[in-house]
Computed example of a mutant assay.
Amino acid sequence: MSTEAEILQLSLEKFRWKTEGEIDRIADLFDDDLVFIHITGHQTTKTEWISQLRSKHFVYNRINQREAKVKAYGDTAVLVGKADFRVNGGSLYKLIYTEVYTKKKNQWKLVNLHTTSTY
């Protein structure tokens, strides 16, 4: 499987884990130094975001990926996509997002996630 196909599959699995509440799998995917920039511009660390997911302060009800493309650069891969996120019981966000993955100890880690609204 190509790196691009592997990252596309991993990103979709991440969405499934989010909607099914598999927080441990998400935590394992996120790099300890993850930088997550929300649509508001607020920056969150891995620890902060996982805590919000565990406490159900933020719940993903459904994620519908519209499109995604990946470009690999050795042990780094950048995914740019569009998706509809239904969260916290009904709020709908149409987002453009960028995910940056890097391979560490033979495992892909999400090191950067940046979201912006509207597409």
Rank of each mutant, 00 (worst) to 15 (best):
S2P: 14
V59E: 12
G90E: 03
T76G: 07
A27G: 04
G90H: 04
T98V: 14
S51P: 01
T98G: 08
Q65M: 06
V35T: 13
R86G: 02
E4K: 11
K56G: 03
F58G: 05
H38W: 00
T40W: 05
T47Q: 15
K18A: 10
Y101N: 15
H114R: 05
L95E: 03
M1A: 13
E48K: 14
T47N: 15
D33Y: 12
A27L: 04
G89V: 06
D32N: 11
N61D: 15
R62G: 00
G41F: 14
E13T: 04
H114Q: 13
I23S: 02
T47K: 15
N61A: 04
A27I: 03
N106G: 02
E6D: 12
N64Y: 00
F58R: 12
Q52S: 13
A83N: 09
R54I: 05
S51V: 03
L110D: 08
D75E: 10
L95W: 01
L12Y: 00
V78M: 07
T45Q: 13
G81C: 02
Q65N: 11
E22D: 06
T98H: 05
G74S: 04
V100D: 14
N64V: 02
I63C: 02
G81E: 07
R66S: 01
Q43K: 10
V80F: 09
M1K: 11
S11H: 09
A27W: 04
K105N: 15
K109Q: 11
F58V: 08
V87Q: 05
F58N: 05
V78R: 01
Y119D: 15
N64R: 00
T115F: 06
T45P: 06
R54Q: 11
F85D: 02
Y93S: 14
L8M: 09
E22A: 01
K46V: 09
K46W: 09
